[in-house]
Amino acid sequence: MAASVHYQIENVTKQFPMRKGTLQALDPVSLEIYQNEFVAILGTSGCGKSTLLRMLAGFTAPTTGQILSHGVPITGPGKDRGMVFQSYTLFPWMTVQKNVEYGLKQQKMEKSARAETARKYLNVVGLDGFADAYPKELSGGMKQRVAIARALAANPESLLLDEPFGALDTQTRSHMQELTLDVWRQYPKTIVMVTHDIEEAIFMADRIVVMRARPGSIKEIIDVDLPRDRDFYIKSDPAFLDYKRHINELIYEESLKLEQEALGA
């Protein structure tokens, strides 16, 4: 890939102050993410995936090191980096339609164009019928799909996804994976996605970053050398299964380490 670098993560660490001492959430992490690349981050729970994503979003600053976007240090959140959170973050006082329109409204898009774009993305995530519903009337998976539609509709240069499909059933989940890839192909953008699902990572990403258990750091980066026009059937391709086996082993090693640590302590 001859693309230019979008994000440079340079020796980034993160500590959180605790009641006693500090918690080392991330050991030094260095990573370059290219323009319009799809990167997936895998790792055991608590290894600092969300923390890394939050630093990319600009919500929290690295303790040491720095993160550059197009060569400029990230100092705060911005509309160039859309985000789908692990938790539910729809605006409860707005209908589903208004939620999806929100980003477009901030961009001063004209009202009818806004409504049309929102409808299009609600259709993409399969929630046409719920435009006038309020978030409290939706299931967890539906809320998450609206959040995805809201982030996609704003069409940011980059998307940060924190387990966006975690609350979805298997069918909806693979459907959403394909839809997200479709949107990404149509509107290329740099995507960094945290997930627990190895298959999902291989299916969607150009590169997969596997992290060590806490304190997190990069264990291995895997280039997913599969054709980019992936469809459902690739999931049973021998090459796909090889990746899966390999990553499974890496994750297993890490969880074993956690287990031994717990026994030793």
Partner: peptide
């Protein structure tokens, strides 16, 4: 008001 809501609104250009 959950801080999440404030954060997400920033990513949407608020």
């Amino acid at each position: 008001v959950p801080h999440d809501l404030v954060e997400v609104s920033y990513t949407l250009g608020t």
